[in-house]
C-alpha cells in the first residue's frame, strides 16, 4: 500500500463547524476549557455570540446544550472523550437523550469529542477513553459515530447538523491516514465496504480501518480474500451489510481501540448472532486499561492490546479455521 496521507481531525472539524455556522444561524458551539485543543475556538472567533465556553464543567456543558437545543438551536458540544461520557452520562441521558418533544426522539445536541481510545498516548490511562462506545450506545435515542479519517469527520459533522436528534462522534487525537475518497457518501446506519472479499470480513472503525486495509493486502499475498468494512456508524449499526458479510465470507474479525466489552465488536456480534451467526473474533483492549506512551511509542501501546494489522492477519486465519 502507498504511504498514507496523514491529516488532522480536529482541524477538519473546526472547518466544518465554521462552514455550518455560515449556512445555519442556529448552529452554536460549546466547549469546556478545551476549545483551543478541539479547535472549536475558530468558530468562536467567527461567531462570538454563538460560542460558549462553560469552563471545566462537563455536566454543565451537556445540560446547557440541552437548554439551547430545546429552544431551537443546534448545539455542538465538544471536549475530550474521557470527560464527556465518562463524567456526564447522567446529563447525557436525562437532559439530552431522554427529553423528547412531541414527535421527536431526544434533544438536538451533537456531542463531538476528541482524544478517543488508546492512541491518546502520553497522557496515560486516565485519559484513554475505552468505554465510551459501550456507555453511549446503550442510551436510547442516541446515535454513535467513529470516523476513520478527516473526510468522514467533515461529512459526518454536516450530516449531524442536518439530521435531527442527539449524536455522539469520537475523533482520534493524532493525525489519521486518509482512507476515503472525497466522493464517499456517508449515511447514518450504513457501513462502507472499502474492499470486497469472500473468505473473511474485517469490521473496523476509526484508526483501525487503515490497519484492516493493510491486513487485507497481507492476506491477499497468502491467497485469502478479505472484505473490509468501515463501521463508522456503530449505532444504528448496519445489520444488512453485516448479515451479507457473514453469509458471503463466513467469519468476521472486529478491531477497535475500545474495550472489547460493549464496543463496536460487541455491536457487530449482537447483530450477526441474530441474523446469521458465524465465528467472530474481537480485537481491542482486553478488558484492561491503557497507559502512557510517547507519540512514537503509541504503536507499541496498540500492539500490547493486539491492535495491529499483523494481529488482524493472525486472527483472520484462526477464525477461518472455526468456520461452520
Amino acid at each position: 500500500m502507498n504511504e498514507p496521507v496523514m491529516t488532522d481531525m480536529r482541524s477538519e472539524y473546526s472547518k466544518a463547524l465554521i462552514q455550518l455556522g455560515k449556512e445555519n444561524p442556529n448552529v452554536v458551539v460549546l466547549g469546556a476549557d478545551t476549545t483551543d485543543s478541539l479547535k472549536t475556538s475558530g468558530f468562536g472567533k467567527e461567531f462570538p455570540n454563538r460560542f460558549f465556553n462553560v469552563g471545566i464543567a462537563e455536566a454543565n456543558l451537556v445540560t446547557t446544550s440541552a437548554g439551547l437545543a430545546v429552544s431551537g438551536k443546534i448545539p455542538f458540544a465538544s471536549t475530550y472523550a474521557i470527560f464527556l461520557p465518562g463524567r456526564a452520562v447522567d446529563q447525557i441521558r436525562n437532559n439530552v437523550a431522554y427529553p423528547s418533544p412531541p414527535g421527536k426522539k431526544g434533544l438536538n445536541v451533537k456531542f463531538v469529542v476528541s482524544h478517543g481510545g488508546l492512541s491518546v498516548g502520553p497522557d496515560g490511562g486516565s485519559h484513554q477513553q475505552i468505554e465510551d462506545i459501550g456507555i453511549m450506545r446503550v442510551i436510547p435515542n442516541l446515535r454513535v459515530f467513529i470516523p476513520a479519517d478527516t473526510i468522514a469527520v467533515s461529512k459526518l459533522t454536516s450530516l449531524m447538523a442536518n439530521e435531527y436528534g442527539p449524536f455522539y462522534m469520537r475523533m482520534a487525537r493524532s493525525k489519521t491516514p486518509l482512507v476515503h475518497s472525497d466522493s464517499q457518501n456517508f449515511e447514518t446506519g450504513k457501513a462502507i465496504t472499502l474492499r470486497d472479499g469472500s473468505d473473511c470480513t474485517i469490521a473496523a472503525c476509526g484508526i483501525t480501518v487503515r490497519m484492516a486495509l493493510e491486513a487485507a493486502e497481507l492476506l491477499q499475498q497468502d491467497g485469502i480474500s478479505c472484505r473490509v468494512l468501515d463501521i463508522f456508524s456503530i449505532k444504528p449499526i448496519d445489520g444488512t451489510t453485516l448479515e451479507k458479510a457473514a453469509r458471503e465470507t463466513g467469519c468476521i474479525v472486529t478491531a477497535e481501540e475500545h474495550n472489547i466489552l460493549g464496543g463496536m465488536g460487541s455491536a457487530v456480534a449482537e447483530s450477526v448472532s441474530e441474523s446469521y451467526p458465524v465465528p467472530i473474533k474481537r480485537i481491542g483492549a482486553q478488558d484492561m486499561f491503557g497507559e502512557s506512551a510517547r507519540d512514537k511509542e503509541i504503536p507499541l501501546l496498540l500492539e500490547k492490546h493486539g491492535i495491529t494489522s499483523f494481529n488482524m492477519v493472525k486472527q483472520v486465519k484462526e477464525v477461518r479455521s472455526k468456520k461452520l
Partner: peptide, 8 residues
C-alpha cells in the same frame, strides 16, 4: 444549566 441554555 438547562435554564441558562434557554436564556442564552
Amino acid at each position: 444549566s438547562y435554564s441558562v441554555g434557554i436564556a442564552l
